[in-house]
Amino acid sequence: MGSAIPSLIGVIIATFLLSRALPGDPAVYFAGPAANAESVQQVRESLGLDKSVPEQFALYVWDLAHGSLGTSLTTGQPVADDLLQRLPASMELTFAALIVAIVVAVPLGVFAAVRPSSFVDHFCRGTVTVAAAFPTFFVALLLVYVFYYLLGWAPQPLGRIDEIYYVAPDTVTGFYLIDTLLAGDSESFRGALAQLVLPTISLALFALAPIARMTRASMLTALGSDFVRTARANGLSGATVLFTYGFRNALLSITNIMGMIFSFLLGSNVLIEQVFGWPGIGAYAVSAVIASDYAAVQGFILMMAVIYVLLNLVVDLLAGLIDPRVRFEG
């Protein structure tokens, strides 16, 4: 946790400078195509952009200290509200993709490690490489083309739920799958699930490769270790050796990369959300960048940084649960 504060300060400074480095002048953008120099100047003053950069930074930090991320120029809403409203959509998608990726990739990696150079191993490496080789947005478009346009199995790729047929649930967690279940509305649950399938698969494919490869590598290390040899020499059954001795030790390295993968996924959301009309933070960030909407861009990056820090905290806690050595150091 001690390293979190300096990195957050760094992020605050970097995002401020980066967003100022975006090409384009927001005053011109918001004054509209018909504006003359005078009205552009007016807009600039109203946005506070006529002040010097240090002054702007001081204002920004002052606002942050008071819990305000500023107001978005495009939506007219406080950035914090915008982000919090959209975050659950992205989170739901990311979690779903991560779970799917883990459920597929971890067993694949384990099988590949148990039988190295076997058919399963080559198959695993092949699929995983192919899955990682295609850009996410291309896979997403391909899936939409095949399953929506050609086969008609998937619903229209327009957001989290088709509001013509289903009722969006009341917000409790912001995760539609959970909220619809809480509301006891199985119809809407199915509707939300149907919308979630294609974006989840496109995103999960991207995470398969690193998880499967990490699982395979760490399983191979664990199974080749001295303590597994001891377990075998003591006649322990194959399942005990594989899971209690091999997998639990391999789990350490797998957990360690999960934080990284989760943040990768959150980043790749940007593209997937565009393809599926998903009302998440990725889509929000893209339009903010296009409009040079400083406050929104800064807010987005800052939130991602905070999520990343929290994520690493969770990973550390998990590592402590698995490995007593980590626990005792702390």
Binding site: F227, T230, A233, N234, R248, P324
Partner: peptide
């Protein structure tokens, strides 16, 4: 039979034991 009738111990006992059990 392994571990019950014939047992084996190894060098470097530290790494020969499961570190997280």
């Amino acid at each position: 039979m392994r571990g019950r009738e014939i047992s084996m111990i190894f060098q470097s006992p530290r790494t020969a034991l499961n570190p997280i059990r």
